[in-house]
Design a protein around this nucleic acid. Structure first.
Length: 272
DNA sequence: ATGTCCTTGGCTCAAGGA
């Protein structure tokens, strides 16, 4: 089973690019982020005609996630659970879960992690409460709690999407340019490791080593032409899911096409 | 650090987000 993640940066602007990529890459499942559309405006019919089931969790203008799947999507839930006193339901559409059943069932968590910039810090270096960076870190804390719940089931599941996290220096062409950025700050790296340390396998790095592998190139300053990219789109696999991993690749060439997203698809092949 | 793109409001450009 081929499962892909793809931040499309707006469904209206990406209809053709997305359609073409689906036709040739033929993923069984596509986890989409930044659909930037309300549910009613998402062109589900176009994907249903290609044989996909479609579920969305959208909002106006920003964010929004969707799942396309050739297999039925079961037990769909939207949003991260409210996990602590004082937590409010997330008004931002960034998380959707569903289960697909191949040889066995696998739970799919599709996420669009907050960007977190600009970073605002207090005088003693703490993220300003209510600021975008504090929201990112708090969101990661909630995601961590949800991951713990799912791990307790000891069944295959994955969490994939746009993490807005550059894991290591080798994941950026110019790492020094990202120092201080919400995707590369120490607090962000600490939360990323805290997630991984629950026992996840980062699919791409379990198979490919070394620098020069990116999933995002900014539209600005000729980043694509200079291959000035970062790797921020990831798959985290639960132990039972990692055992099923056959392959993980980045569809880099998609970035060089007509009217591209600033992200490219990343996919895993699972023995399912 | 900014050589861009996407969205919306209610236009023909500006602002916010990334």
């Amino acid at each position: 089973m081929k499962i892909a993640t793809f931040n499309i940066n707006g469904i209206k602007a990406r209809i053709n690019a997305l359609s073409d990529w689906l036709d040739e890459a033929q993923p069984d499942v596509a986890l989409l982020q930044e659909i930037k559309s309300v549910d009613e405006a998402f062109p589900s019919e176009m994907f249903e005609e290609k044989g996909y089931n479609v579920v969305t969790h959208g909002q106006k203008s920003f964010n929004g996630v969707a799942i396309l799947s050739k297999l039925p999507l079961e037990d769909v839930t939207r949003g991260l659970p409210i996990l602590a006193d004082g937590d409010e339901a997330d008004e931002q559409a960034r998380w959707i879960e569903a289960t697909v059943v191949g040889k066995q069932a696998v739970r799919l968590c599709n996420l669009y992690l907050p960007n977190g910039n600009p970073v605002e810090l207090t005088e003693d270096g703490q993220p300003v409460p209510g600021g975008k960076y504090a929201y990112k870190l708090r969101w990661m804390e909630r995601m961590h709690a949800r991951a713990q719940q799912l791990l307790a089931e000891e069944a295959p599941f994955l969490m994939a999407g746009d993490y807005n996290i550059i894991p290591q220096a080798e994941d950026a062409k110019r790492p020094q340019a990202w120092e201080g950025d919400a995707a590369y700050r120490p607090e962000s790296h600490a939360m990323w490791r805290k997630l991984l340390n629950l026992g996840f396998t980062e699919a791409f790095r379990s198979r490919t080593f070394g620098a020069g592998h990116y999933s995002f190139w900014d539209y600005q300053a000729g980043a694509w032409n200079r291959d000035d990219g970062i790797r921020i789109d990831h798959f985290l696999l639960s132990p039972q899911c990692a055992d099923l991993l056959l392959d993980c690749q980045i569809d880099k060439e998609v970035r060089g096409r007509e009217k591209p997203s600033d992200h490219v698809p990343v996919w895993v092949e699972l023995d399912l």
